[in-house]
């Protein structure tokens, strides 16, 4: 049996006039993976996702989903996709239940099957009691859950989510995470973008960090943190003596305002050195996170 990767991108480019939104990226997503696109606003994540969804044609390079070209096999690919967009685009002319039924028609799902699947899915996202409620009366969290249920109506093999939990309260976020994990356990491949780096660390087993249309880093969350920072960060209050001391011990560090961050695999050694040799106070050590890598790679300057 030949195992076909779910998504294969090679040298993928997307330009809008003069502007290069995606600048020659290559990546692969295998079946059952949860793959994350991270990056600041305008990094090219959503553009990349739109090309995978076959709603924005690629400019050049290779992009295949289930072994099919996105520019020529749109309908065939979209049949297997579930899409959770960034913006809520539920149909306000219909109730919760009708939204599901009308959507099922676009996938040629028969009425009997659609009713059964709709009941199951509304139960899955805990909206069965809101069946006959109009869309406008749903809370933000309920709308996101309904969009997720709607994306699952065709039992997709690839689920694509653009900022699935933006604007949700912690309860609703955890519920969505929970649902995504149970889908992953059913071998549904998931591709998502998010600005919540804890979310990416929680859910993704592989991710890419993008900026200016390029991929800066790729790997599992742990690998990415380990390769770029090490396991830990030691934070010291900035002062003239700190720089000298750190240069002395050839540490990898960065000055961020009045704080100095030292990247290390051996926080104890760094801490004791700073305490003993340099007589510095106010030292904290903590585990390095994806957020640290993100800021290190994409800089601290505000975007847009």
């Amino acid at each position: 049996m030949v195992i076909i990767s779910v998504i294969v991108a090679e040298d993928l480019v997307k330009t809008f006039g003069e502007f290069v939104a995606v600048d020659g990226i290559s990546f692969m997503v295998e079946e059952g993976e949860v793959f994350g696109f991270l990056g600041p606003n305008g990094a090219g994540k959503t553009t990349a996702m739109k090309m995978i969804q076959c709603v924005s044609p690629k400019t050049s390079g290779k992009l295949e989903v289930f072994g099919m070209d996105v520019n020529t096999h749109q309908s065939e690919i979209k049949r297997f996709l579930g899409i959770v967009p960034q913006e809520t685009n539920l149909d306000p002319d219909f109730s919760v239940y009708e939204n599901m039924m009308v959507y099922s028609r676009y996938f040629d799902i028969g009425r009997t099957d659609a009713r059964k699947v709709t009941d199951e899915l509304l139960d899955f996202v805990q909206l069965d009691e809101k069946k006959n409620v109009n869309i406008e009366q749903l809370s933000g969290g309920m709308k996101r859950r309904l969009i997720l249920a709607r994306a699952l109506i065709n039992s997709p093999r690839l689920l694509i989510l653009d900022e699935p939990t933006v604007g949700l309260d912690p309860q609703a976020r955890h519920l969505i995470w929970d649902k995504l994990r149970s889908l992953r356990d059913k071998n549904v491949t998931i591709v998502l973008t998010t600005h919540y780096l804890d979310e990416a660390a929680q859910l993704c087993n592989k991710l890419v960090i993008m900026d200016h249309g390029r991929i800066l880093e790729e790997g599992s969350p742990q690998e990415i943190v380990k390769n770029n920072i090490g396991t830990d960060i030691v934070e010291v209050e900035n002062g003239p003596e700190v720089k000298v001391c750190l240069d002395d011990m050839t540490a990898d560090y960065e000055i961020i305002g009045d704080i100095v961050q030292v990247y290390t695999d051996d926080p104890q050694q760094v801490t004791s050195h700073l305490l003993r040799e340099c007589m510095l106070g106010k030292i904290t050590a903590r585990t390095a996170t994806l957020e640290d890598v993100f800021l290190k790679l994409t800089g601290r300057k505000l975007r847009e």
Binding site: V55, E76, K78, P85, N89, D91, P92, D93, Y106, F107
Partner: peptide, 11 residues
């Protein structure tokens, strides 16, 4: 309503 966007996410 973004109805067209929603529909072109299907086949």
């Amino acid at each position: 309503q973004k109805t067209y966007d929603a529909i072109i996410s299907t086949p």
